[in-house]
Amino acid sequence: MRVVADLDLCQAHQMCQGEAPDVFGFDAGADKVTLLQEHPDESVRPQVQAAVRYCPAMALSIEES
């Protein structure tokens, strides 16, 4: 899987970071989420799916490889 974050849509709620902290970080200077792992291990799929589902700005998605 590949995680995609549309930083133009990101509103810095940081919900994704709470759901999948190993995959999503936060850049305070830019006030945007950062991707720590674009291709995370399959074991964190449930956390990444929750982050995508709960993103208030709908800025996250998963692409299957």
Rank of each mutant, 00 (worst) to 15 (best):
M1H: 02
R2Y: 03
V3Q: 07
A5W: 06
D6E: 12
D8N: 15
D8R: 08
L9W: 09
C10L: 12
Q11D: 14
A12N: 02
H13Y: 12
H13L: 05
M15R: 10
M15W: 10
C16E: 02
C16K: 00
C16A: 06
Q17E: 12
Q17C: 13
E19H: 06
E19C: 11
E19M: 12
A20Q: 07
P21L: 05
D22N: 11
D22H: 02
V23M: 01
V23P: 00
V23E: 01
F24R: 02
F24P: 07
G25L: 04
G25R: 01
F26R: 03
D27W: 12
D27K: 08
A28L: 13
A28F: 13
D31S: 15
D31Q: 14
D31V: 14
K32D: 03
V33Y: 05
L35Q: 00
L35V: 01
Q37W: 03
Q37C: 04
Q37V: 05
E38C: 06
E38A: 10
E38F: 09
E38L: 02
P40Y: 00
P40A: 00
P40W: 00
D41W: 08
D41L: 04
D41P: 06
E42Q: 13
E42I: 09
E42H: 11
S43I: 09
V44H: 03
R45N: 05
R45K: 11
P46C: 01
Q47D: 12
Q47A: 14
Q49C: 00
A50F: 00
A51H: 00
A51R: 01
R53S: 13
P56R: 03
P56T: 14
P56E: 09
M58Y: 10
M58T: 13
M58Q: 15
A59L: 08
A59Q: 07
L60S: 08
L60R: 04
L60E: 06
E63W: 08
E63P: 13
E64P: 05
S65E: 10
